[in-house]
Design a protein around this nucleic acid. Structure first.
Lengths: 340, 340
DNA sequence: ATGAAAGCGCTAACAT
DNA sequence: ATGTTAGCGCTTTCAT
């Protein structure tokens, strides 16, 4: 099984020249006779010589790579963000290594370690929903490996960060629900440790308070983002006698769970229950009714994250920065009570 | 900016021992005195020593990685397949490096080269729609790097392959359209060089012929998979006086384009025009009407691809194998003419 | 129990 | 124009 690769040594031996001569010939160094160079190239061709570069080798000819860890590439937001990251890093001849934590803390930890061991020049991360300890990122800081968090981040680790103003986004969305006449507005968040979720919760509560609507804990729920989790959480909110008549959901996927539950329960969407999601996924306009959603500049988030990591690779000691990008409420029929 | 890493040499110097002693102490070699070992470990800790492994280093302690190239992780099929690949390779402590060709031949070529240069142990690939030359894969074969194609493949390169029976899938789907009473059935494929697209075309034609329906070239169209491309292709088929009354689309995304065009044109879905897509994406059941689609075992495709690459890494000289997985037509309302 | 030295594949500084 | 040699970080064999 040992398909030994051809080395400079092999070629040198065949040609009765030194290794350096071969090395230089292959590099196109001009101080080599055309004749020798030709012979070397020929033989290299014949022996199918190629050089294995390394991500972080001793030599200067290294390949630089940045590790990207996201909860799942199935989420449209992350697929878009990754495209943004690629767009930027490609121009700098940097490879990107995409990994999924699958929302698992253990897996995230392993991934961080392995990426560091491979020798990536930096890490761009959006946290797993399970993660509530951050040693693995502190380890990265110890090793002085540039680190950027985007979208899902934490206060426990100092680093560059890219987010939207989740408080404001949730506030505005809740206000919209109020403005179309919802009285019993629910919020479905993610696992508690997920900071963006609690930030949104605060925005939601503030909007209610500002409108003199009492905050009712029974209208505040969480989900684990699985399909079943989303559905059962939605059912909890809709099957009580005093069911919610407006829902702000953590994501469009969660919002779809609410739509399914509402259909099942026989509620008329928009009329009986208005729904807003997060992320503005392309399918939103194809749903029936089309789904009102908060548009996050996901591609741009990727671009900004990549720019920040480049800055920090350039100058590790620079100050941490925090980019807050603008989000936008895209109003569609799921919150249009006057539809008919 | 030069954050030099601590090396064995540094530690050895501080402790006035040899490099080998430090190396052994760190490896837990028993022939080192407990005292020395402790001192070494302490200092390593203090200096924050860590070892950079390499994907393909001289030493035995290497990290093995497999490169995965897909057209885009935005396609649900590929996100699922990647999960399948991860599932398998994870168990073998192998890293996977995910890359997107973005349907570009040039990009695919660069990716193959860079992944090989990094020193991946194998490549799992689904071709870009643009690709019609295959030198880059022949290069991989030259280098004896294990190669597996899945879903989108080509006959030009010999390698392990994983697919579904696209001919049969298209045949069955077309037959279903015929059985619900469609007379003018169209096929929307991808770029011509995409082999799965032409295979499906053959299945489509055969089904028509077997049902004594003449094949009409004006009902055979292609798209570049962009949103606009899908829509404009769909319009071509629907805006003629004798518009298509049944469509077999290359993917669910393409099928959605047809649905949008049909809505725009004022056609009643299912009744005036029946639609079938490929891939059975989760949104299919949420669409209005829900979309009939061919379910491909995408996760399983990933699993099989990973297994094949493992086999070939184990034994490069083994014979090529070709796994054909079963697909299934999932019938929903978009082809239910008797809906009302 | 520890050190010295070779070697992995290659580049580059220093001869000649 | 080409060869010699040191060296990158580490492991490993061979001495001691």
């Amino acid at each position: 099984m040992d398909k030994k690769q051809t080395t400079l040594k092999d070629i040198a031996a065949k040609l009765n020249v030194s290794i350096s001569t071969v090395s230089r010939a292959l590099q196109g160094n001009t101080r080599i006779s055309a004749q020798t160079r030709e012979k070397v190239l020929e033989l290299a061709q014949e022996y199918n010589y190629f050089q294995t570069k390394h991500i972080n080798p001793f030599s200067k000819k290294k390949i630089q790579a940045v590790g990207v860890i996201v909860p799942s590439i199935k989420y449209h937001l992350y697929a878009m963000a990754i495209s943004g990251i690629e767009e930027v890093l490609e121009k700098h001849q940097m490879q990107i290594i995409i990994c999924q934590s699958n929302e698992s803390y253990e897996r995230e930890k392993i991934l961080v370690k392995e990426l560091m061991d491979i020798g990536v020049s930096g890490l761009i991360v959006s946290l797993a929903s399970e993660t509530k300890e951050f040693d693995h990122f502190l380890e990265a800081k110890k090793r002085k490996i540039p680190l950027v968090f985007f979208n899902r981040l934490c206060d426990e680790v100092e680093s560059d960060k890219v987010i939207i103003d989740n408080f404001k986004a949730a506030y505005d969305a809740t206000q919209h629900l109020i403005s179309v006449g919802c009285k019993r507005i629910a919020y479905i968040g993610g696992p508690e440790m997920l900071q963006i979720s609690s930030t949104r919760l605060l925005g939601y509560k503030k909007a209610l308070i500002d409108a003199d609507i009492p905050v009712d804990e029974k209208f505040i729920e969480t989900t684990d983002f699985t399909r079943e989790g989303n559905l059962s959480t939605a059912r909890k909110l809709l099957y009580s006698p005093e069911h919610a008549d407006g829902v702000l959901a953590f994501s469009d996927q969660v919002a779809i769970g609410v739509m399914l539950a509402a259909k099942e329960r026989g509620l008329k969407m928009a009329e009986d229950i208005a729904i807003i999601g997060f992320n503005n996924e392309p399918i939103d306009e194809l749903l029936e009714p089309s789904l009102t959603s908060i548009d996050q500049p996901s591609y741009e988030m990727g671009v900004e994250s990549a720019n920040l990591i480049l800055d920090r690779i350039e100058n590790y000691e620079k100050e941490d920065s925090r980019k807050v990008l603008k989000s936008e409420l895209v109003i569609r029929n799921s919150t249009n009570k006057n539809k008919l």
